[in-house]
Amino acid sequence: MSRSNRWFFFLIVFALLLALIAALASGPVSINLSSALAEGWHSENSDAVILWQLRLPRALLAIMVGAALGMGGAAMQGMLRNPLAEPALLGVSSGAALAAILLLYYGVAWQSGWLLPLLAIAGAFCSVACVWMLAGRGASASRLVLAGVAINAFLSALMALALNYAPSMFAMQEIVFWLLGSLANRGWDQLLLALPFILAGAALLFAARNYLRALSLGEATAASLGFRGRRYPLLVLAGIAAAVGAAVAVAGTIGFVGLVVPHLMRPLVRQDPGRLLWASALAGALLLLIADILVINIVGAQELRIGAVTAFLGAPFFFWLIVSARRGQSL
């Protein structure tokens, strides 16, 4: 990594810290941040409760989910060697969301504990495996996107169907949450539920970083370098499913993060798929946290879904990337 790139990553980390402070200071109620911090975790003072029980878990959840989505997108693009691969676009998030919907609305509700992320991960794994098998090895971008769009459309239809027949009166209106995501009213319980699985996913992807590097030279070269068999693709698939599945289970489907962030970070890591994983995790966390700050400050209690904001933030970057590609630069 060059010196300028290193500075850029320090800048992202610094921006993430600033965004965290902004997130802790944002909300419908004006609080004294420093005294609330000093009051501590166990204080019953309303400012401290708002800070420690409401704002902090929400901001950390945004960081965690953003990191999972960014990292998942980078791994997917690396494994499929396709710049359009993204968890939400290719149905991975829909698979996780469908599993979560079936469990929550027809099963054992929010108290289901570990079952919720586990089932969501299984759903994500099944859908990413379906896309992979449907498109076939070394699929062209168009075939892969076609397979992903088909799986995504089918799973979205199943989600709508499941919510339509769910016993809850609110189920149908909540399809918006599952399609666009939200961090509203989330607490430490949801954060702690998803955290171990996202960390496990990150560890699996980290373990597969050299495979992703080798794969960037082509499948045959990767095989000649010792990355043969199904072990490595399965490792990546499991990593993506664990990170993205757990994130979707608690925050719904949030699009664009996994698509845009790896593209933005790739030049900064000199196209290295291994480094791209953690760079995308950092940038994904930053993007989602900024999106959540905008959600909180712009629309208040009647919250705009965070997926809409990430699309607002992400789309202009993507336009820029496309225009750059048309001018002859690489995408």
């Binding site: 109620v29 309303s46 409401l54 609305y105 609110f170 209106q173 009213n185």
Partner: peptide, 25 residues
């Protein structure tokens, strides 16, 4: 919002409806 509930500190918090089915609402 939940923040406003905490900041207002009502003596009684009144919830509405005995919905037993899961809903994000």
């Amino acid at each position: 919002s939940l923040e406003e509930v905490i900041a207002l500190q009502p003596d009684l918090l009144v919830l509405y409806g005995g919905e037993s089915d899961f809903a994000l609402a």
